[in-house]
Design a protein around this nucleic acid. Structure first.
Lengths: 344, 344
DNA sequence: TTTTGATGTTTAAACGATTAAACTTATGTT
DNA sequence: AACATAAGTTTAATCGTTTAAACATCAAAA
């Protein structure tokens, strides 16, 4: 059983025919190529017997198609993206595509590298959760005519395929919900980023305040850097709860901000929701297991991932396919962390 | 800027030489192959100018090496494995390898599929977190002489490379720790599995009881099926806390068991650690954010992943390399969930 | 009997890179 | 002048597959 690699040639030899016939038969082109019936049967049998596995490299080299999708996500350690990755993988498999995953860790330079690695691994197309300041990369893919779909984040000034969330609406909903439940001083902890989705969250939050005639305070809106998030989250929360206009509720703009924030609130011995109401973007076990279940915005990950793959596969099958853009709605899952505030 | 794919031939044409020279120069073999200095310079310049990216498929087809590692993990939705995957990826990148990841979801059939897919994608070698009953797959790889390293789980009866944890010791430590802290009736919630690592955890737990003259009760040791874990965890816990010998502490044999278990304890309104002490395998944010920080066994993920890659790469570079096996120690991280029991 | 058509099979180029071997000049040695 | 050696470059095979085109064989039609 020390089988060496079996190639078309081996089968051809055993069957006493040329490799062309074997190729035809094994690709189900017996009809079009009028291969003799007995020969065809014989070839199939030998192939099975030798457990022939075609060499993908050779196939791809010939066809120019690798049936591989390059998935670049912003941060693999974030369960939201990890899940998305998994969904994309599963969905791609259904369409007979393999996925190569890479994480840019939110750095544009890294995603450049990944794009190049993937290009010369000959991926057929890309699905990308863009890092900040990576517009030129998207532009580059467009110019080289490489098929891609942006996922979860997009650049409104670029005309590309994308599948994302209506973040403005989501943040607006979060804010409105808290206000309705009696919270009056609502903070937002976001990432410092010029990415559109983050800006939209900020705008949605601001609009919720405005429409309810709440005067926004500078100390309520904090933006922290992705790197050394831990320290900055602490500092930001300190500022939000200090001063003469402390917040009585806060919105976390991402899951990782929430995890860090909740840890710190624990340390400060602030009780949710009595001391401070909470709504967060993202989702994870943590939100269920926190002593007080956290209200969060449920992003339809399955739909996001599935649709992104679908768009890309369609485009791969027919490059003339037009540009497709979707904004999906996040759904507010109301839990105890934002329950109606007892009038104090 | 609508550059089509650039090949060696294109460069050769521009430079007015044969592809051979271009290949030599671009692979740094100018010296051995005595390429003219000016020509070499010219070739390099043209290559840069055209932004030449070698075609990996062609390279691999020729060399028989893809510089790709196939990583098969048991369950990508488990953060422990997701993290391991990430570490393996990073480490592989350092050695200039790309990683293809697949999740078997703990099913042997799936991992067979993955192995086949990866084989005909011509991976150079495998790193595998084995699913139950996949011994024959490991055997198969051995027979076909395909390089691989088992990670986190291994089969003691098979003579293979592996990097795992000393699970016996870890479970023993967990049990002993609880006993020392005054708990008397200690349960273990494990997976129903004949995988060695799980059996070892059970044995370690049992030995801890035995050495402390605690008579093990049948209702204390529960094994649940991976599929519909949620229901079975509930049922198991119900049984553990019922009867005339209810547990006053329990050990979760994996992270996912812990997440499900803790959720249920919440629902039951059982307080940790007063009503029930907890120690768990695995790690994750949840353990920090639970109202009572959870004592857990810290598995050296970085070392595990790094070492697995290292073993594999060594073997790829020198197939004669001998079999390497390592058992690493898990470290008990003591937190409040297992603190000294107040005498009641 | 030649032609036409259908049927079945092989040949050979192509995909892009690597590399041993062959070839061509030029230079130095006797 | 004759030859050996060095320096620089090209040729061609190879990896495993696909596929258009060429080729061969035979039966039926003209």
């Amino acid at each position: 059983m020390k089988d060496k690699k079996i190639s078309l040639k081996d089968i051809a030899q055993q069957a006493g025919v040329s490799t062309a016939l074997v190729s035809y038969v094994l690709n189900g082109k017996e009809k079009e190529s009028r291969v003799g019936k007995e020969i065809a049967a014989k070839i199939k049998e030998i192939a099975k017997e030798l457990n022939y596995q075609p060499n993908h490299l050779a196939k791809s080299l010939r066809s120019g198609k690798t049936h591989t999708i390059g998935l670049i996500i912003a941060d693999i350690s974030n369960p939201f993206f990890a899940n998305i990755a998994r969904i994309v993988e599963d969905e791609a498999k259904k369409h007979n595509y393999t996925v190569i995953i890479g994480s840019s860790d939110e750095k544009a330079a890294n995603s450049w590298d990944l794009i190049n690695v993937m290009i010369n691994r000959q991926v057929d197309g890309f699905i990308i959760v863009s890092a900040e300041n990576s517009e030129e990369q998207v532009q580059y893919l467009k110019e080289r005519n490489l098929p891609f779909v942006l996922l979860d984040r997009h650049f409104p000034e670029l005309h590309t395929d994308y599948v994302s969330i209506n973040n403005n609406k989501a943040a607006y909903d979060a804010g409105t919900h808290l206000i309705k439940n009696g919270y009056k001083s609502i903070g937002l902890l976001a990432y410092k980023s010029n990415l559109f989705h983050m800006q939209e969250r900020i705008r949605g939050y601001q609009q919720a305040l405005k429409e309810n005639d709440i005067k926004p305070q500078k100390s309520w809106l904090k933006e922290v850097n992705f790197i050394n998030i831990e320290k900055e989250v602490r500092a930001s929360i300190d500022q939000m709860i200090a001063g003469k206009n402390p917040v009585d509720a806060m919105i976390f703009a991402t899951y990782s901000l929430a995890v860090n924030g909740l840890k710190y609130l624990n340390e400060l011995n602030l009780k949710v929701p009595t001391d401070i109401g909470i709504v967060s973007f993202g989702q994870g076990d943590t939100f269920d297991l926190y002593y007080c279940p956290i209200t969060y915005l449920h992003q339809p990950m399955n739909d996001l991932g599935r649709t992104a793959v679908e768009f890309l596969v369609k485009k791969l099958q027919n490059p003339e396919e037009g540009i497709k853009q979707v904004l999906m709605e996040a759904k507010l899952m109301t839990r105890e962390s934002s329950q109606v505030k007892e009038s104090s």
